[in-house]
Design a protein around this nucleic acid. Structure first.
Lengths: 199, 199
DNA sequence: AAGTATATTTACCGAATGGTAAGTTGTCAA
DNA sequence: TTGACAACTTACCATTCGGTAAATATACTT
């Protein structure tokens, strides 16, 4: 199996896992979309669980890569944080599959992790916490405090991408497009106002 | 079936839907936890879909009730917004079932709504948008802008409750408890800094 | 041409899924 | 006592689930 073929398989599987969740998506339906039988898919990835794991691992890696790129480019930690959070939104919005998968992983992981035994998201969160600690933000000096802030900013950034399908139908395409158009600058404003708050 | 019995049924079902998702939870396993057969459950609620719908409707109603109570008690719209957002976090944290269900609904609704044909969360979101518009926040004067802000604050408030199971295992109980302890005040700080930002 | 991985198929398997149909039990009112 | 209704069970049903085993097809190497 060529590398590009494998990526095609992973991308289709990721889309279906994102749409329907781990339990809702079946290897048979993923295989069908790929013009394969489910047995062919199982041959390549061993099991549904391993297929899913490879997808999550890929997302985690690419997120980590994006963070290090930003940290390398940007000097000031506060600018790093803003760039990471807004970049997170842009990235997740452009590729909703990843954000939905991350959200689902957070919801499902407890029960799944007992078998899988892996925390795909931990290195990613830890990197974000390090940035916050480096940025010396008011009232976010300890590790738990920084993690709380990271979580709130991440939540602000990722809640919309995750809800795109529902919201766009709920409010109609036009209003939703206006919503999306202003979201980045709204987000930037939120991050900035929090970062510049005084003790 | 007495009203309290029905509520017991709904509460157990809600818990399982929250933990495993609509597809992951089976009526059989819900029934088992209630010392019933799945047929008895189906007898009372008609179908899995209807059972789920009743749960979501209940959550939406109770959220709406909480919002109107706050709006009645608090005069200043900015205070309303802060109270609603922080209250949302406290509420969802104390009852993670509801927040997980809402999150899952946002993720799954598109595909499910085609059959169910109902937007459980719309009145709730609309009420929040009305508060923001009334609060006259900088750069959140139009409806889409206000919705964006609502979404970001809601995301900040709800991302943690949703991730409790995963995070508490990932970071261990102690660090996680510290995280939780400071989250409300961190959240209040975030809301305040955004509300007081100038144009 | 023969051999050998790799890719994919057909044929299964047991278990679980949501749902239907028909019958049983229990309760309360007329 | 009888009738009626709600609560609940047993017995099914077709379908789908993830996964295994074995056979076949394809492609590359020697």
């Amino acid at each position: 199996m060529g590398e590009s073929t494998r990526e095609k398989f992973l991308s289709v599987a990721a889309k279906q896992f994102a749409e329907k969740g781990f339990y809702g998506a079946s290897i048979a339906s993923i295989a069908t979309e790929l013009d394969l039988t489910k047995q062919a898919l199982l041959h390549h990835f061993g099991s549904k669980e391993k297929l899913y794991a490879e997808i999550l691992q890929g997302i985690s890696n690419s997120n980590l890569r994006r963070i290090s790129a930003i940290r390398a480019q940007t000097a000031e930690p506060k600018d790093q944080l803003e760039a990471v959070v807004v970049g997170e939104f842009e990235q997740q919005y452009a590729n909703p599959v990843a954000s939905a998968l991350i959200m689902r992983e957070l919801l499902d992981n407890e029960r799944r992790a007992e078998k899988a035994g892996n925390w795909f998201l931990k290195p990613y969160l830890d990197a974000l916490v390090d940035i916050v600690l480096g940025a010396n933000v008011a009232a976010a000096k300890t590790r738990p405090e920084a993690l709380a802030l990271v979580y709130q900013l991440l939540g602000a950034a990722m809640y919309l991408p995750v809800s795109v399908p529902t919201l766009s139908k709920m409010y109609g395409k036009r209003l939703f497009e206006e919503l999306r158009a202003g979201y980045s600058s709204e987000l930037r404003r939120l991050v900035q106002s929090r970062l510049n708050a005084r003790d």
